[in-house]
Design a protein around this nucleic acid. Structure first.
Length: 581
DNA sequence: GCCGTTTTCGGCCCGACTGTTTTCAGTCG
């Protein structure tokens, strides 16, 4: 685990304890924010920790947190947090994570009910011990028990690739409900985060009870968690919660903005509104008349409400696409004009045929690329060390190159390049000799083994591949699998700088299990001006549809078409490719 | 705990829903 992650965990834990012990909510908020900043930081914090002023220059990190970070880097511990940890039973932090239980309730359960962890909470509910605690009625206790049981069998956050099809099916189903005029999924799904906590669906309807019933009575709904006039939550037996919000069509934009988040972005927008003597909520942007009663309930006309764009415009800030609405400071607000889009992709540069572990013949693969209007396709089957993937021996590779070049002659609407996805061996050497690599038009170099080596070795290993004169791009640089495998943790700033210096690209692998580079590493590359390719790593025809996940991640990293070779015109792309030969 | 084109002190986003209340606290997003 990187020290960023360890530090983020310590701050998160401290925030939880502060909450339970009843600290000032704004202080809890500030500590939580530091945890999130540390988690999202693209580079290792350890080398920065010497410089307290430098740490405090990061928006959201003040004197107190900077000192704690420094102490942790130097000594491996944070004294104040250790004291804090001793102030409550360690198991209480998990109790706070049970949905429906907040700090106030946890504190009462602990002090008045003797609850010290989830197990004791469960057994004390079952034995009826908690029934005379204030505000703990039968129904509340039953709900807590249910939430514990659900969290025990749920898998945590769902991968984007699993959540999106589910959300699209829900949108299709609910759009048929009576009175529905507009519908969209929102939340972290719309922002394209790599994992999703729950699915948010927003509906404009003249007959709210109809979409509400369409959801609660849908097959696959395991439990209706709550259901009111405008808000309904259900749990699907697929193990995910769906939140439905119903609004009037006239404020759909304000509601979409609100339910897309992120929470931090919403807070920023509301603060901007206040500074301009306005109030922003999910019903619209209103003039602030000093009344505490919400403006929409008093018949006040909003300044803007029907589209997101109108609200950004009225606040006099640039429009931000959903993928960029994370925890950004006001200073880097602007969105690049030529962010990558699915339509801007004109080449697929990493995919497999049945020569190694794909299912498509060479012609079937070319057919897929032509159908999508790509001007270039690089065929990149595995190299010899990837035995599990039927990697090509030198002899088979030479035959394959010949077959690809022959196929290239048969089409005049697409250039088919003979490439290879060459293993980067544990010590940084490549899996084929240079004279073999020289015969390839295109080289993707990827790590597939020794994915648990230490960060220093991993950095050196990947640096060797980046510096190799015949390598065009580093495929899925960390080898991580989301929710499955951590992968390598190289010093990304070093890799990004080296890649820029050697005119080597880093791949953003679009497969939703990988999304590697991840969003924050894409950002690092984009800010450095390093090339980033977006490829599907297709093994079967349907994999070409995974491109959208790579695009979402690329946009989250602020990747422009200018820095993404897949977006370039053929001549420019081929010129760059030849420059490595 | 963090922050400052009024500020180094005094603020810090806003509304829906539930359960247990009899007017609202707690949680969530």
């Amino acid at each position: 685990m990187s020290s960023n992650r360890e530090l983020a965990t310590r701050f998160q834990e401290a925030a939880a304890i502060l909450e339970i012990t009843g600290a000032n909510a704004f202080r809890v908020n500030a500590v939580t924010k530091v945890a999130r900043i540390l988690e999202d930081l693209p580079t290792e914090i350890a080398p920065l920790a010497e410089d307290l002023k430098g740490l405090q220059a990061i928006d959201g990190i003040g004197k107190s947190s900077a000192e704690k970070i420094k102490q942790f880097v130097e000594t491996g511990t944070i004294e104040e947090f250790d004291t804090l940890r001793d102030s409550i039973p360690p198991g209480l932090i998990q109790v706070l994570e049970v949905p429906g239980l907040g700090p106030k309730t946890v504190k009462v359960l602990w002090e008045k009910g003797g609850v010290v962890d989830v197990a004791s909470l469960k057994s004390k509910i079952e034995s009826g011990e908690l029934e005379n605690i204030p505000r703990m009625g039968k129904k509340t206790l039953a709900n807590i028990l249910d939430a514990i049981e659900f969290s025990e069998r749920s898998q945590g956050r769902m991968r984007l690739g699993d959540a999106l099809p589910l959300a699209e099916a829900l949108v299709a189903r609910l759009s048929n409900a009576r009175g529905v005029t507009r519908i969209a999924y929102a939340g972290s799904l719309r922002r394209g985060r790599e994992t999703i906590g729950d699915i948010d669906i927003l509906v404009a309807s003249s007959a709210p009870e109809s979409p509400t019933r369409a959801l609660t009575e849908m097959p696959g709904v395991e439990k209706v968690l709550l259901s009111g006039d405008t808000k309904t939550s259900v749990r699907l037996d697929a193990g995910v919660q769906v939140d439905l919000r119903i609004v009037e069509e006239s404020n759909f934009g304000a509601a979409l903005l609100y339910f897309t988040g992120s929470k931090e972005h919403n807070v920023m927008l509301r603060e901007i509104a206040i500074a301009k003597s306005m109030r922003l909520n999910e019903y619209g942007l209103f003039p602030d008349d000093g009344e505490t009663e919400p403006p929409q309930t008093r018949g006040i006309e909003p300044v803007a409400a029907d589209t997101e764009q109108a609200i950004y415009e009225a606040l006099e800030v640039g429009y931000l696409p959903p993928e960029l609405r994370e925890n950004r400071s006001a200073s880097d607000w602007a969105a690049p004009e030529d962010l990558v889009t699915t339509r801007s992709i004109k080449a697929e540069l990493h995919c497999h045929t049945n020569a190694s572990d794909g299912v498509m013949t060479l012609d079937a693969l070319i057919d897929q690329a032509r159908k999508r209007g790509f001007h270039t396709l690089a065929v990149t089957d595995h190299s010899k060390s990837s035995v599990q993937a039927n990697g090509l021996s030198v002899e088979r590779l030479l035959e394959h190159i010949e077959a690809i070049h022959e196929a290239n002659e048969r089409f005049d609407d697409i250039t088919v390049l003979a490439g290879s996805e060459v293993d980067i061996l544990a010590d940084g050497r490549l899996d084929y000799d240079d004279e073999i690599l020289q015969r390839l038009d295109w080289v993707v170099a990827s790590p597939h083994s020794s994915l648990r080596q230490d960060p220093k070795k991993a950095t050196e290993r990947l640096l060797m591949a980046i510096e190799h004169p015949m390598v065009h791009v580093i495929g899925h640089p960390t080898g991580r699998l989301i929710n499955e495998r951590e992968g390598l943790a190289p010093d990304m700033a070093t890799l990004v700088a080296a890649a820029k210096a050697h005119d080597t690209a880093l791949e953003l692998n679009a497969n939703p299990w990988r999304l590697d580079l991840r969003d924050r590493h894409v950002r690092l590359a984009a800010e450095a001006g390093t090339l980033v390719t977006i490829d599907t790593d297709a093994h079967k025809p349907a994999d070409f549809e995974l491109l959208k996940f790579g695009i979402l991640t690329g946009r989250r990293g602020g990747l422009t078409q200018a820095l993404c070779p897949n977006c370039w015109e053929a001549e420019r792309l081929h010129g760059w490719i030849r420059s490595k030969r």
